[in-house]
């Protein structure tokens, strides 16, 4: 019968981070904290997500202005995942709170296999200001016990981006699932089952 070998720090970190991701996905709109990968600055948390979930069986894409090329190289080196076009990618890494249309272009799965929809990982800027529209947003659905919904814990996400997610998920269960991470590892998830309403 097999016995155990001591797990490496990487194995333990990936396991812990997965549990945080799972909790976040189970409780949309609330704040959790990942163990970020140092020293990767602005992308430390996104890279921790990549290392936890990506490998050679996965295709990923990057969207956004700054440093995406070096970030893509870092993801590929750390995980063995292959670069893919936006419509084919399993994971889409977005720099900044503005998705540059990624939510509309990412894969939403098929009616037989809606789970083939992509996961978007938004790296938020540490200095981002609160979006003035945030107070109009209510989240409800599975994982949210409050009858009249909650406001998202991360308030720097532009209302327009949330609206883009809502549009991408209009044909539920087709859709995309979003993770928002801050450089310090803070994490919030918005799975496609979450209803996003703007008051």
């Amino acid at each position: 019968m097999p016995t155990r070998m001591p797990p490496s720090n990487r194995i333990i970190r990936d396991q812990r981070n997965f549990r945080v991701l799972l909790q976040a996905m189970s409780r949309p709109g609330r704040l959790f904290r990942l163990e970020a990968l140092q020293p990767f600055g602005a992308h430390a948390a996104a890279l921790a997500v990549a290392q936890c979930l990506l490998d050679h069986e996965v295709g990923f894409s990057t969207v956004g202005r700054e440093s995406t090329e070096s970030f893509a190289a870092a993801v590929a080196a750390a995980t063995g995942a292959r670069k893919a076009g936006l419509p084919e990618a399993d994971f889409v890494f977005v720099a900044g709170p503005d998705g540059h249309g990624a939510a509309g272009a990412a894969r939403r799965g098929s009616i037989d296999y809606p789970d083939a929809g992509a996961t978007l990982v938004y790296s938020l800027d540490a200095q981002a200001a609160r979006d003035p529209g945030h107070f109009r947003i209510r989240l409800s659905g599975p994982g949210i016990p409050e009858e009249d919904g909650i406001a998202p814990a991360m308030r720097e996400i532009p209302a327009a981006e949330l609206q883009a997610l809502q549009t991408a998920n209009a044909d539920y269960p087709l859709g995309i699932d979003a993770l928002f991470v801050r450089p310090n590892g803070e994490l919030m998830a918005l799975p496609r089952s979450t209803r996003i309403r703007l008051r």
Partner: peptide, 9 residues
């Protein structure tokens, strides 16, 4: 990865 998708749907 599959577990996260299962939770999302």
């Amino acid at each position: 990865r599959r577990m996260l998708k299962a939770v999302a749907i």
